[in-house]
Structures are given as structure tokens and as C-alpha cells.
Design a protein around this nucleic acid. Structure first.
Length: 1112
RNA sequence: AGUCUCGUAGCUCAGCUGGUUAGAGCGCUACACUGAUAAUGUAGAGGCCGGCGGUUCAAGUCCGCCCGAGACUACCA
């Protein structure tokens, strides 16, 4: 009984490779046995590898690119887990933000304006909260199916009160450090929707569209001069009434040109950039008459250039207001210097309207130039265009008119009427249609205005230096993203605009008094409670901390200022990016709970996301970490590229080229998908996702590995090899075993280093090459006989294995189990499947899964570079010899006498000698004959060693190469003997050593040779009877084996064979009859004169005979 | 517009700090092998290494400019 039980433990054998099925089986196993949980629990608490999960939004469906990003994450977490680290992976969900609001509005068929009217904020937010997790099940499903190990049971969720409280705490830290301020800036604003827009919204597809505007080059009259004007170009004439300054470039050259105005014929001097002269003027013509200049948009001739000056000289010059509807409250209307001024288009002079441009606003403020404003009904200043996009009454001629196309009906756009007015007043130099891309509101489809709005900012510029410094300690993959994209971004850092005028998000915890003089930033729920109590007492209210910290409840809370005034919350929400950047502390509800946990898990060892997160999550993590904790928040970061379709197009729903990740995984398995993604290209390069590539990975890598395993399992089961025997010492194993073990250990070393260096592509490619080229195509192919031969001779009855066979099994087992471990981080399913198939039969390791095993460590002692080199020689010599056979059309089954191998140094000969047996059997040749110099029949080739000589010879290198190339056999022989050479070129003499040459064998006269870089092989193709008989015998064996197979005989069945007599067969059967019988398990082999019942076979030399094969 | 990445065979990619016949796999064609066989081997065809210019004895590799693809950032008037 006991023995029988033992016999039951066998290597599982399969009918075929079904990777998707393996996925499912392994997944079931993991879940039933809590493998993920164990892989965490089994590692020590104090040896952590900290990973932060960048929270996805479950509001959209997962795509194939998520599989990419999560493969990267999973791979390194699994790797470090196998390296003995405790890798906890807390999941998370990003639940705030615009896309969620959009979804809700779309579903309800409402716009932002309806919020608070048609639908209460309360109801609206309730809908958002419901929508947020809409696809959570789908996400959980893809997470499972792709084998991404992340803890989904206790994720952080950004809309929860605890999370919000931690975010508030962080904001309070910034506030206390004086890093938060309220400011006025020019922001994209949609009058049609009545809301400010984020840059994200402007970057939605289709937001920027080409539109045709009426552009104008206006003439700004220089104060105190007659008929002298600055020319400034604008594509938005409606901003001209708001003009308060002009900007020029300090180092730009300007000219004053005398010309006739094309509309009025008036003689005028105009100032514009010299570089732009040709854009507005044709030729100089001193004798020009006014009638020579016609209205029209082409360049016009001019009289003369009357002056030239630098922009710096123009600074401070005053001019007369162009459209004097509203007066400034401070001096304005002068020329400023602006570094943004270019001469690429326009006139090189920029019209400045501080209320409608960010640059304008900034340069005006720096120069103390006021904006033009009027008072609204509450007496607050407002620009000359109202929030609906209409001119205010003060702009009398155009009062109430929309400045852009907002669907109003009118004869002409207001821009055109402004231009007409300028023309009438002799203030227009030129007007023409201009096509440019202009942002539109994604929802109303109407043009966006840049409009001054109030916002809260984080003064990130104050921490710029420190962010830059700390960034340099982060290991970025690829480096260029960190140094370039991210580094440059930090260098040009702007303050972080935190405000969003929305409803579903983390509320800004700042309360202000009505006169804006006092404010409080709340840093915790407890603080809010105390403040509420104070306010309740003073104001006689009965407020409480709301159950939900979102709007609208939080908006209702009135707090008390220090001087006793009521304060209301600033209605803004904060940028959702702050939510995600807050996750290192907020996921633990730090500092209100889990202080220790946070400290142990900060900063992260590793994060990974798409490269599009560089200025998103990567930045917000970094910024918050630097400003609040003065530290990095992650030490290593991998930013992966995009996943494109097979043609290299971005996947998008509109193109219909989006791949369903569930389909891909269902059809091709998670492992193939993961392996393909990792091995095909570096994760930071864009991946052209091609199903054909998946199929190739499946066939070439997984198919080969599966074949190798199946081969092993088949014979190991027959021989009952369960690796229970003592290991055959390496020194007693054959060369080829020591070779593959050496390679295996080299592989372990390299793959370990690659994973540690966040180079998954290198790692997976190396494993692939090892499995295909070395393990399967060389080791297994050459060792096949070792596995089956003895068992056949022993007639399938288990008995003591000979040492050689045992060594083969042990070697192959070790390779397979090690490969399983090496590939486990990238292809976790197949790796575990193979590991368990092996380990459950052998019981060698007490891990129930490969993911609980340790990552292999390389045994340096068994790495033998010399051995690796000589096997490389063996492979190359074999390949060359086979190519010669091919050329000579001699089949491989035909044995040959010998190959000739020129020997250039004795070490090479020793190396080849050690692998001689392998080579001979591989190429079916009886012997290797070494050809040395002394034989005199070797022709050699000499080349300069450019690497050593180039630097020394410099210009003489060319001549030297020529001279060396012309050397004869005697010269080469002399150099080899004396090991030195005096080279004379161009009168210079150089002392060269053997190092400076590359000498290779070129030819053996009279023989067909084949050669690669430094190996040359010649094949002796003479045949004699003996060889021919043996060749024939091998072909007979082959035919009989085929018949055995066709007839589905068991490998152990004995047979009787009868062959029709033929002259060509007689010597083979006479000399090699025993060999044929042994190979085919034939107990009888006879030649018969007449054969009726047999089948016909074809043998070399167009010999056709009948043969009969019968099971005994 | 700026920053960054990428551009090598029909396709996917190697090509180390510059070194002289530019490689692999897939695909294609032909042949061979066959006790791993929905495999395997060998050979062949297939490259102005995106373009132009420069540095150098020597450039796929370094530098500059340009073209193309992509990402991010950006109100250019």
C-alpha cells in the first residue's frame, strides 16, 4: 500500500497546451489556498518592500493599457516578494472628479446650470457616489483574471470621510506653512456654461478646433507725435477696448516705416518689428503716391524706413488709448517689455488686455499697469465683458453684444464691427481673416474665453528647488522621464491652482468672513467640531458636524472668526489630483489613525503608472511629500508608455480599435498577454499591440517550454524519477549537463539583476532565449537519447538508473524548476502550474506555490565561462558543418569520416576537444582533424584591430589598414612568431604587437569551407562502403520507427521485421543488423526475396523496397 | 509652440563606452530532419540604420538642423 501511494505521485501529463485553462485552474488554486495572503504573511514584518497603488477610477471600464500598467506593478511586487520582502499591496479607488460628474450629467440629461435648480446638490452628489463604483465588479474581475495581486478587501476610497479628513490635514499643513493663498488669475472660462474649465477639460479631444476670426492690426497713436503709430496685431479685436499696454521684446529690432494708410491714404509712420516688415510691406518706393496703395490684404509698398531701434528703447513710451470707453484708475497705456514677445507672427508688438490674457495679466501686474474694469451691481470690479460673454453697458457702441459666437443672431460678429469702427477712426492698419485653433467648451461646443477668476493656490514655486533636489534621488525608469520631462516640469513650475468650481469632490476646508478679512483652515473633523461649538454658542445655532463631509452639507456650516464674525466656506472643491497625491498618508487615515503603519510604509519603494501621469500622480505625490514631509514619496518609479493598436494608432472608441482585455485574456491567457507586453518592448516605449505577437509568444515560448516539460514528464514517469535520489555531483555529470547548469546559473544572476534594476524586458527576453535556444534546442535535443534509451533496454521495468540518466533527469529538473521561478513574476500562472507539477511529484520543496518559494540565487561556483564558450564553439561548429552538408547535399543520416578544423591557438583545440563527442554525434561525423599552421595547408587572413590601433594611429589608420590587408601568409606567420611588427606608414613608424591584429583562418586549399567570425570548418565528404552501409542502416531504422509510430505501437513493443532483398540493402543488414534490431526493438530482421504483404518504403539512392513490420 | 520618447529587413525588436561584411525572431522561398512532432534544423531572398549637414582615421552609434509618429505641457498677441 505504501509503495502504491508513492507511485501515484506522478508528473502530470497533458493532451495539449491550454493556457487559458491553466489560468483558471491556477486562479482557483490560489484563491482556495490563500496563496496571495500567504505570500504576504510569510514574509517578515520588518523587511518590507513598499508599493503604492495609483488608484484607478471605477467609473470607466478597464482597457488593455491597464493590463500593461498593472503587469509592471505586479511583476516587481511578486519579484520582491520572492526575494523575501513583505509586499503589502493596498488597493484604492479614485472616486472624485470631472469624468464622474460628466457621466451623471449625461445620464440625467442636465447641465451644470441645472445643479441646485433642477436637481439639488444633495441629489446630484448622491448620483455621483452611485456612479463612481459602477464598473468596480469589472475591475475586480480583470484584476483577478490578469493575475494582478492587490488587496481589494480593504481599499482606500477617496470619497470617504476618513480620506477627506487626511486630505484636510495635509492642506492644513500647507496652510500653516504659508503655502496657500487666494489669487486672481486668468483662467479658461465657458460663458455658455457659466463655469471655469480645467486644463484637462481643454485637452479633451475636439476641444481645440480651427476657427476663422477677424484679425486686426491696430494703430496705437504715439503720444505727442503726429501720425506716428505702434502696430499691434490681435485675433480677438473684442479685447481692444480693454487694452491698457503694449509689449515689445527687449532685444527685438524695430523699425519706423513711412507709408500711406491703405484705407485712408493718410501719410503715417508705423512702428513694428524689423523681422515682420516683409509680412506687411512689399518694396520700398520713395516716389510712392497715396493712390498706389489700395485697400486689400496684400503687403503694400512703403516710402522709406525712417528709424530703427531695439525694443528696449521703446520701453516706457506712452500712447493714446485706442478705444476710450473706460478709464483706468492708474497711469496706463505705455510700452512694456515682455519676454513672451516673438516675431513669428503679428507685428512683434503685443496688445495687452490684462483682464483677458494670462501673459497680459502677469506682465501688467509686474509693471503696475491696471486692468480696465467697471463696477458690477454689488460694486465689485468686473471686466468689460460679463460672465455671459457680453460687453458691459460702458462699452457703449457694443453694449450687450456677445464677443464670440454664442448662438446669438446678428448681422455681423462684434469683432467685425470693431474693425469697421477702427477703420472709420483711422486706427486700423490692416484687417484680415485668420484661421487658428481655439479652445471650445467640451459641453456647450462654444468658444472659451480667458477670464479673470478667483482661485486658491498652493505656492509650489516656493518648494521648487527642494522638489528638484529630491527628484534627483529618485530612480526613474526610464531615466529621461525623470530628468527630462519631470525635471523640466519642475524647473518651470507654476503655483498649483487648487480650486475647482464643482460639486463632487473634496471641499476646500477654508472658511472666510464676508469682508474677506479673516479666514480659518480646518485640519481635522475634531477641529471642525470645536469650531462649530464656538460658532453655535456665539451665533445661537445648533449646527453639527455633517455625516458626509461633501457639499452641500459642509457648505451650510457657519464658523466664527477670531473677531466674532460669521465665516462661510469658500465654495471651491480641490483639484482631484490632490486626492491621489495624498494617498500615502490618506490611505491610512494618517495622522488620526495608523501612525505606525504609515511610518513603516513611507516612502514607497516602488510605484508605476503610465507616462501620462508624470505631471499628474507622480507630480502630486512628489509635491505633497516635499512640501509636507520634506521627503520623496517614492524611491523607484516606472512609467510605462501607451498601448497602441497594431498599426501604431492610439486606441480610441471612435476609431473602434479598442481591444477588450477580457477577450484577449480569455483567448490567449493572462500569461501570454503579460509576457508579450513585457518582452516585446521596454514598458516605457509605446507598445504596438498585435495579436500575432501574442500568438508568437504562445508558440515560441510557452509552447516550447510546455514541450520541454511534457518530454520530461513523459520519461520521468516511465522511469519513476522523482528526484529522490542523491544528486549526482556536478563533477561527475557529463559536459553538457555542467554546461546547461552553468548557463542556468548565469541566467539566474542576470535575470535577478534585471528585475532588481526594473528591467523586465531584459529579464523576460533572457529567459526566453535560454528556454528556446539552450534548453530546448540544444540540451534536450542532444540529450534525448539519455532519457529514453536505458528505459527501453530495460523494457520499461523500473530498475536502478544509471548515473548518466539520473544526471540528465536531475539536470533537466533543475532547469525547469528554476525557470519556473525566474518567470514567476512575469507569467505567474504558467510558472506556478509548472512548478507545482514538478514539485508535487518530487516533493523536493515544501512550498505549495512558486510564489511562496524564494527567488533562485546563482551559484557562482558552477558558472564556468570556459565551458559556456566551448559549448558555443560546439554549436557553431555543428551549424557550420550542417551548412556544408546542405551545400553538398549529403543527408545527415549519412555518416562521414571527419571534419577539418583549423586551430589558431592551443586553447581553442582544448576547448573543442572537450565537446568533441557532442559535435560528432550532432553532425554524424566520425572524427575531427585539427589543422595547425605547421601542416602548411592553412591559409590565414589578417585584419587590423581597429580598437587598439585607431587611437594610436589616428590619421594613419587608413593607410595602415591597407598595408595590413595586403600582408601575405609569410608576413602573418612572422607576426605570429615574433609577436611584434614595426609598421611604417607615411614616414611614421609604429611598434605593433599581436594584440593589434586579428588573425583568422580563411581557407583550406582544396576543401569546401564554411566560416563565421573566427571558426572555419571543412567537411570530408568522401564515402566508402562502410559509411554507406551505416548510412543505409540508419535510414532503415528511421523507416521502421516511422512505421512503428504509424501503427501506434507502444514504445516498448517488440517487433519482427522483414525486408525485401535489394543489393543496396545487403551490406547494411549484414554489417549493421544488430544495430538496426537494437534501435527498433526488433527480435528478428530478415531479407526475403519475395514480399507481397509489406508496404513500400523509399531509401536513399531511389531504392524502393517493400517491408513488413509486425508486433510480436 | 515647448519638453520628452521613438524612427534599423515586410512585421516586432537587438546593436555595449564610435572600430570596418549591421544582427535575431516572425513571415516568405527551398531543402532537410523526425521516439519533443500543432515541433525542429539549414540555406536563400530581403537594409541609402527617417533626411541633410558636422565632428572623427573611423558614425546605425556623438553633435546640429529638418521630416514623421506619439505623450505631456501651453490662453502665444
Amino acid at each position: 500500500m505504501h509503495l502504491q501511494n508513492k507511485d501515484l505521485a506522478m508528473y502530470k501529463e497533458y493532451k495539449g497546451l491550454n493556457l487559458p485553462q491553466i489560468d483558471k485552474d491556477v486562479l482557483e488554486f490560489w484563491e482556495a489556498n490563500r496563496i496571495f495572503e500567504k505570500s504576504v504573511e510569510q514574509r517578515p514584518e520588518d523587511n518590507r518592500y513598499v508599493f503604492y497603488e495609483g488608484p484607478p477610477s471605477a467609473n470607466g471600464k478597464p482597457g488593455i493599457h491597464h493590463v500593461m500598467a498593472r503587469t509592471v506593478k505586479d511583476l516587481f511586487c511578486r519579484y520582491h516578494s520572492m526575494k523575501g520582502k513583505r509586499v503589502e499591496r493596498k488597493g484604492g479607488w479614485d472616486t472624485h472628479g470631472l469624468p464622474i460628474e460628466l457621466n451623471v450629467e449625461k445620464e440625467l440629461g442636465i447641465t451644470k446650470e441645472d445643479i441646485g435648480k433642477a436637481i439639488s446638490v444633495d441629489e446630484y452628489n448622491r448620483r455621483c457616489r452611485e456612479t463612481v463604483m459602477r464598473y468596480k465588479d469589472m475591475w475586480d474581475d480583470i484584476t483577478r483574471k490578469m493575475g494582478y495581486w492587490v488587496d481589494l478587501h480593504d481599499p482606500y476610497i477617496t470619497f470617504e470621510n476618513d480620506y477627506i479628513e487626511s486630505v484636510w490635514w495635509l492642506l492644513r499643513q500647507l496652510y500653516d506653512k504659508g503655502l496657500m493663498y487666494k489669487g486672481y488669475t486668468i483662467q479658461p472660462y465657458s460663458p455658455a456654461a457659466g463655469t471655469g474649465l480645467s486644463s484637462h477639460e481643454l485637452n479633451l479631444p475636439g476641444a481645440y478646433r480651427d476657427i476663422t476670426d477677424t484679425s486686426a492690426v491696430a494703430q496705437f497713436k504715439v503720444k505727442g507725435k503726429e501720425n506716428e503709430y505702434f502696430l499691434a496685431w490681435t485675433t480677438t479685436p473684442w479685447t481692444l477696448p480693454s487694452n491698457t499696454a503694449l509689449a515689445v521684446g527687449k532685444n527685438i529690432s524695430y523699425v519706423k516705416v513711412r507709408c500711406f494708410n491703405r484705407y485712408t491714404g493718410a501719410l503715417t509712420d508705423v512702428i513694428l518689428a524689423k523681422d515682420r516688415l516683409s509680412a506687411y510691406f512689399s518694396e520700398q518706393n520713395p516716389g510712392l503716391k497715396p493712390e498706389d496703395v489700395k485697400a486689400g490684404n496684400k503687403p503694400i509698398p512703403y516710402l522709406e524706413v525712417v528709424a530703427e531701434m531695439k525694443g528696449a528703447e521703446l520701453e516706457g513710451i506712452e500712447y493714446e488709448q485706442l478705444m476710450p470707453y473706460v478709464q483706468p484708475d492708474k497711469p496706463a497705456f505705455r510700452v512694456l517689455l515682455g519676454d513672451f514677445v516673438s516675431t513669428e507672427d503679428g507685428t512683434g508688438i503685443v496688445h495687452i488686455a490684462p483682464t483677458f490674457g494670462a501673459d497680459d495679466f502677469k506682465v501688467a501686474r509686474e509693471n503696475d499697469i491696471p486692468p480696465l474694469v467697471v463696477k458690477d451691481e454689488l460694486g465689485n470690479p468686473m471686466p468689460l465683458v460679463d460672465k455671459q460673454g457680453r460687453f458691459v453697458n460702458e462699452v457703449s457702441d457694443f453694449a450687450g453684444r456677445y464677443v464670440k459666437d454664442y448662438g446669438q443672431e446678428e448681422e455681423r460678429p462684434v469683432d467685425v464691427d470693431i474693425v469697421i469702427k477702427l477703420k472709420e477712426e483711422d486706427k486700423l492698419f490692416l484687417s484680415e481673416k485668420y484661421v487658428h485653433s481655439y479652445p471650445h467648451c467640451w459641453r456647450t461646443d462654444k468658444p472659451v474665453l480667458y477670464y479673470p477668476l478667483d482661485s486658491w493656490f498652493i505656492k509650489s514655486t516656493a518648494a521648487k528647488e527642494r522638489m528638484f533636489e529630491l527628484n534627483q534621488t529618485i530612480n526613474w525608469k526610464p531615466k529621461s522621464t525623470g530628468e527630462g520631462r519631470f525635471g523640466k516640469w519642475l524647473e518651470n513650475l507654476q503655483d498649483w491652482n487648487l480650486s475647482r468650481s464643482r460639486y463632487w469632490g473634496t471641499p476646500l476646508p477654508i472658511w472666510r468672513s464676508e469682508d474677506q478679512q479673516e479666514e480659518k483652515c480646518i485640519g481635522s473633523v475634531e477641529e471642525l467640531r470645536q469650531e462649530i461649538r464656538k460658532a453655535n454658542e456665539a451665533l445661537g445655532l445648533s449646527q453639527e458636524v455633517p455625516n458626509d463631509l461633501h457639499r452641500p452639507y459642509i457648505d451650510e456650516i457657519v464658523l466664527l472668526s477670531d473677531s466674532g464674525k460669521p465665516m462661510k466656506r469658500e465654495l471651491d472643491l480641490i483639484d482631484v489630483w490632490f486626492d491621489s497625491g495624498a494617498m500615502p498618508s490618506a490611505q491610512w487615515h494618517y495622522p488620526f489613525e495608523n501612525k505606525k503603519v504609515f511610518e513603516k510604509n513611507y516612502p514607497a519603494d516602488f510605484i508605476a503608472e503610465g507616462v501620462d501621469q508624470t505631471r499628474g500622480w507622480f507630480y502630486t505625490l512628489h509635491a505633497i511629500a516635499v512640501m509636507v514631509f520634506d521627503s520623496v514619496s517614492f524611491k523607484n518609479v516606472v512609467s510605462n508608455g501607451l498601448v497602441l493598436d497594431a498599426e501604431g494608432n492610439k486606441m480610441s472608441k471612435s476609431k473602434g480599435n479598442v481591444l477588450d482585455p477580457f477577450q484577449v485574456i480569455e483567448n490567449h491567457s493572462a500569461d501570454v498577454t503579460r509576457w508579450y507586453m513585457m518582452s516585446n518592448a521596454n514598458p516605457w516605449d509605446n507598445l504596438k499591440f498585435d495579436i500575432k505577437g501574442l500568438e508568437e509568444v504562445q508558440r515560441k515560448f510557452f509552447g516550447t517550454l510546455y514541450n520541454t516539460y511534457s518530454f520530461f514528464a513523459l520519461y520521468a514517469n516511465i522511469d519513476k524519477f522523482y528526484n529522490k535520489e542523491e544528486q549526482v555531483p556536478l563533477s561527475e555529470r557529463p559536459e553538457i549537463d555542467r554546461w546547461i547548469i552553468s548557463l542556468l546559473n548565469s541566467l539566474v544572476k542576470e535575470v535577478d539583476a534585471d528585475y532588481a534594476d526594473y528591467e523586465p524586458t531584459q529579464a523576460t527576453r533572457k529567459v526566453h532565449n535560454f528556454v528556446n535556444d539552450n534548453l530546448s534546442n540544444w540540451y534536450v535535443r542532444l540529450c534525448r537519447r539519455r532519457f529514453w534509451k536505458p528505459s527501453q533496454q530495460q523494457n520499461g521495468k523500473g530498475s536502478a538508473m544509471d548515473m548518466d540518466k539520473l544526471a540528465a533527469y536531475q539536470t533537466l529538473y533543475e532547469c525547469l524548476v528554476t525557470v519556473a521561478k525566474l518567470m514567476a513574476p512575469a507569467a505567474p500562472f504558467f510558472a506556478d502550474w509548472m512548478y507545482r507539477n514538478l514539485n508535487e511529484a518530487s516533493g523536493l520543496e515544501n512550498h505549495e506555490s512558486v510564489h511562496l518559494a524564494g527567488f533562485p540565487t546563482a551559484n557562482e561556483a558552477v558558472i564556468d565561462k570556459d565551458l559556456e564558450q566551448r559549448m558555443d564553439y560546439a554549436q557553431r561548429i555543428s551549424s557550420l558543418a550542417l551548412s556544408l552538408r546542405k551545400k553538398e547535399k549529403i543527408r545527415v543520416r549519412q555518416p562521414l569520416h571527419k571534419i577539418l578544423l583549423p586551430i589558431l591557438d592551443s586553447h581553442f583545440q582544448e576547448q573543442v576537444e572537450a565537446v568533441k563527442g557532442l559535435v560528432l554525434s550532432e553532425i554524424n561525423v566520425k572524427d575531427i582533424e585539427y589543422v595547425t599552421d605547421t601542416s602548411g595547408i592553412l591559409k590565414k587572413k589578417i585584419k587590423p584591430n581597429f580598437k587598439t590601433l585607431g587611437r594610436r594611429l589616428g590619421k594613419d589608420m587608413k593607410a595602415a589598414a591597407q598595408a595590413i590587408g595586403n600582408m601575405g601568409q609569410e608576413d602573418i606567420a612572422r607576426i605570429e612568431k615574433t609577436k611584434q611588427y614595426i609598421l611604417e606608414v607615411d614616414g611614421n613608424s609604429y611598434e605593433l604587437t599581436l594584440e593589434d591584429f586579428e588573425i583568422t583562418a580563411e581557407d583550406i586549399p582544396g576543401w569546401q569551407v564554411a566560416g563565421d567570425d573566427d571558426i572555419t570548418v571543412a567537411l570530408d565528404i568522401t564515402l566508402d562502403e562502410e559509411l554507406e552501409a551505416e548510412g543505409m542502416a540508419r535510414d532503415i531504422v528511421n523507416r521502421i520507427q516511422n512505421i512503428r509510430k504509424d501503427k501506434d505501437f507502444e514504445v516498448t513493443d517488440k517487433i519482427r521485421v522483414a525486408l525485401q532483398k535489394h543489393d543496396a540493402l545487403v551490406p547494411a543488414v549484414e554489417k549493421y543488423g544488430e544495430y538496426i534490431k537494437a534501435e527498433t526493438l526488433a527480435t528478428g530482421l530478415q531479407l526475403v526475396d519475395e514480399m507481397i504483404d509489406g508496404e513500400e518504403i523509399e531509401l536513399p539512392g531511389e531504392v524502393k523496397v517493400n517491408i513488413s513490420v509486425h508486433r510480436q
